[in-house]
């Protein structure tokens, strides 16, 4: 029971973190029709920027500056790279971001090497907030959750109650129409891209101190966030929120489960058959936690291609 509540809490916080990254990705897709492969790289760049800066300007200012730096990188990518490829079609934009993921990965390896760097939680936050039974809960995890909730709230408020938010929401659905109405859509896109990248960067800076900061994190988180965005419905912020929590909680819960598919089959009397086949049937579910998001994504794509809350088919 203690395990379960801790897992639920962990999963929720992980889900919130995923949302912080996925929000930008799904908005960018909505506006540009391009799924940004390099989005995971922004998360990674944020973590490394946080690592470098926290040692120089202090931890919390470091987080902020890291987010801003990544936002600036995002803005440059949009302004000077994506925009010039736009004329060649979506496929080439997709390919460009694909190449950028590659380049950012290699650049990070260039400066920081292949192995995780020692980016640590600051002293001020390395204590345990409460105990559930015999388990202590680290304060930093709560901090990750709080930052994500804060950004979620801010994003919702901006999108709901400001003029720019209105334009963004409209542009996600009908970019051409919004442009025809005289709004500077390219500028809005630049802004959304920068904010999206910045949020991913900040998420990276915050999470990097807790999870390992290594060159592998870009493609790892990148693919999970892809799943989130697709499951939630491309372009849908609400869908991304639900999908983030769902995938965060499900994967965290699964890590704690030791049942195998064969065990499940034994409920209906096919247990020994399942064990004989071996392979995926004999692997504990905990080891398949990595498989789950992709299976989920595949299911959603085939059964409800628009995603949980998406409109576009």
């Amino acid at each position: 029971m203690e395990m379960l509540s801790i897992s639920l809490l962990n999963g929720t916080i992980y889900g919130l973190l995923l949302f912080m990254i996925a929000a930008g990705l799904t908005l960018i897709f909505g506006m540009m029709g391009v799924l940004n492969f390099a989005h995971g790289a922004f998360y990674m760049l944020g973590a490394y920027a946080g690592y470098v800066l926290s040692a120089r300007v202090g931890f919390f200012p470091g987080l902020l500056v890291a987010g801003l730096i990544v936002a600036a990188i995002g803005a440059m990518v949009e302004r000077y790279m994506l925009r010039s490829v736009h004329a060649h079609g979506h496929a080439h934009e997709l390919l460009l971001t694909f190449g950028l993921l590659f380049v950012f990965d290699e650049i990070v390896k260039f400066f920081f090497g292949y192995y995780p760097v020692s980016y640590r939680v600051p002293e001020t936050l390395s204590f345990s907030v409460f105990r559930i039974g015999s388990l202590e809960y680290p304060a930093y995890r709560l901090f990750v959750g709080l930052v994500s909730i804060g950004f979620f709230g801010a994003l919702v408020l901006i999108l709901r109650f400001t003029r720019i938010g209105l334009v963004v929401r409209a542009a996600v659905h009908k970019p051409m129409m919004v442009e025809a109405l005289g709004h500077n859509v390219p500028l809005v896109m630049l802004l959304v891209f920068a904010v999206g990248a910045g949020m991913a960067g900040l998420a990276g800076a915050v999470a990097g101190a807790f999870y390992p900061t290594s060159p592998a994190m870009a493609s790892e988180i990148g693919t999970i966030v892809f799943v989130v965005v697709v499951v939630g419905g491309l372009g849908s912020l609400g869908g991304a929120f639900i999908a983030s929590l769902m995938i965060g909680i499900l994967t965290t819960l699964m890590v704690g489960v030791d049942t195998t598919l064969a065990d499940t089959l034994s409920f209906v009397g096919f247990g020994s058959w399942g064990k004989d086949i071996g392979g995926i049937f004999a692997v504990p579910l905990s080891a398949s936690a990595g498989t789950l998001p992709f299976a989920l994504m595949l299911m959603v794509l085939l059964l409800r291609p628009a995603g949980l809350m998406g409109e576009r088919t």
Partner: peptide
């Protein structure tokens, strides 16, 4: 994009199953 995503998902799915 959906085609690209499905092929990506199938690829990742097989990658996560294969070593097990």
């Amino acid at each position: 994009t959906y085609f690209a995503m499905i092929t990506l998902a199938v690829g990742e799915l097989l990658l996560s199953i294969a070593p097990k």
